[in-house]
């Protein structure tokens, strides 16, 4: 089933992209534009890095749909936990 595995060049290209993103992330942290923006940039880069690892190193690109759904399910459920928990915290201060 894994006849289509990533080639060596793809692996190295991904690796260098990951290191470049790491450098970017470290540099962006030193360049301060407000804590929230910095956080979003840092998390955005982390998300891109994770996507690269998932798609290439973990070969999600080459997998059938079912495996992709399973890979996404964990993140989706994590989002449920975050969103609904914050539906409490963000509105707790509001007076009815």
């Amino acid at each position: 089933m894994h006849s289509a595995a990533p080639a060596k060049t793809t692996l190295f290209a991904t690796y260098f992209a990951l290191i470049a993103l790491l450098a970017l992330s470290a540099a962006a942290a030193k360049w301060q534009i407000g804590p929230l923006w910095n956080l979003f940039i840092a998390l955005g880069i982390a998300a891109v890095k994770t996507a690269l690892v998932f798609l290439v190193f973990m070969q999600l690109r080459y997998q059938r749909g079912l495996v992709r759904v399973f890979a996404l399910a964990g993140f989706l459920w994590l989002a449920i936990s975050g969103v609904l928990t914050f539906s409490d915290y963000l509105t707790r201060g509001w007076t009815p």
Partner: peptide
């Protein structure tokens, strides 16, 4: 590895 990719910004890069 991916877990660390998120731990890194959340722990080390929020000092600004």
């Amino acid at each position: 590895d991916c877990v660390w990719i998120f731990l890194y910004p959340l722990l080390y890069l929020i000092g600004g």
